[in-house]
């Protein structure tokens, strides 16, 4: 394992009854980068994350995080990971402050009230400290889930589709949060099926399709290497992008999901970035 490698996945296989969700995946994530796993729904992104988080035992291969084998020592790995799953997992009956307190305790972290407020402030939720999850907008719930991912001051942050279902403003808010995590020296591994998100946010991208890694590089290098030349009409209108890369590599497009319109994201974004 090289010195700057923090996550090392070797020959990972995940099998559900009759579906091979991940097939012999090899992948390394470097310390301090924002790494994006880009792929359509069902590509095997969440299954891969589950194995890194120790939520699922691989059916083949190994995953190491900061030198710890996840299958052998899941607790050591869980301690250094910050996680946000595809479902935001917020108890409806607890307020934002109480949720932070509870999740922090699960990591044996006991923040003071001031520390909790500082964390909420950072995610634009100071006004919502006493609000319960159902009273928060989709974007606010997502930011709360991100705040919870940082309760244990993790070295590595794993985010499963952090912006799916958010409107463009809210997505940009999440991007700002992810960039700040990188500035603090954390490694971020996120999954997405938005090519613009991968291109904007990630230092390197692994394109996953059908449980197989089909390409891995920086966004620019991927485009330079795999995007076919645009037709003259297209070239006049736009630059080649990752969508073209995905199409060239798999013969299919990346299906985007409709985003939902949320409320106060724009206002919040204006005050933080």
């Amino acid at each position: 394992m090289q010195a700057d490698t923090i996550i090392e996945i070797q020959h990972l296989c995940v099998q559900y009854n009759n579906v091979q969700a991940v097939k012999q995946l090899d992948l390394t994530v470097r310390r301090g980068e924002v790494f994006g796993m880009l792929g359509p729904n069902g590509a095997g992104k969440s299954s891969t994350l589950s194995c890194i988080m120790g939520l699922r035992r691989p059916d083949g291969g190994t995953v190491r995080v900061d030198g710890h084998d996840v299958a052998r020592d899941p607790l050591a790995v869980k301690r250094i990971l910050g996680v946000q799953l595809q479902k935001s997992a917020l108890f409806n009956e607890l307020t934002a402050v109480e949720l932070i307190e509870l999740y922090a305790a699960l990591y044996e972290v006991f923040p003071t009230r001031a520390q909790i407020m500082a964390l909420l402030e950072r995610f634009g939720l100071a006004q919502k400290a006493g609000a319960r999850a159902p009273q928060l907008s989709g974007g606010q719930q997502q930011r709360l889930a991100l705040a919870i991912a940082l309760v244990n001051n993790p070295q590595v942050v794993l985010l499963d589709e952090p912006t799916t279902g958010l409107d463009p403003q809210a997505r940009r808010g999440v991007w700002a949060m992810v960039r700040r995590m990188r500035e603090e020296g954390r490694t971020v591994l996120l999954t997405t099926h938005y090519m613009d998100e991968a291109q904007e946010l990630c230092d390197r991208i692994g394109i996953i399709d059908n449980g197989v890694l089909v390409a891995l590089d920086t966004p620019l290098a991927l485009i330079a290497r795999h995007a076919p030349p645009l037709s003259p009409q297209d070239a006049a209108r736009r630059q080649p992008n990752l969508e073209d890369v995905f199409l060239a590599l798999t013969g299919r497009g990346l299906d985007g999901e409709q985003s939902l319109v949320q409320d106060d994201e724009a206002r919040w974004l204006a005050t933080t970035t």
């Binding site: 988080m53 939520l55 899941p74 595809q86 479902k87 997992a89 990591y107 044996e108």
Partner: peptide, 13 residues
């Protein structure tokens, strides 16, 4: 169903 059990399992508790 809400994914809360899974999230709790991701913590070293």
């Amino acid at each position: 169903a809400q994914g809360i059990l899974l999230r709790v399992q991701a913590a070293p508790l």
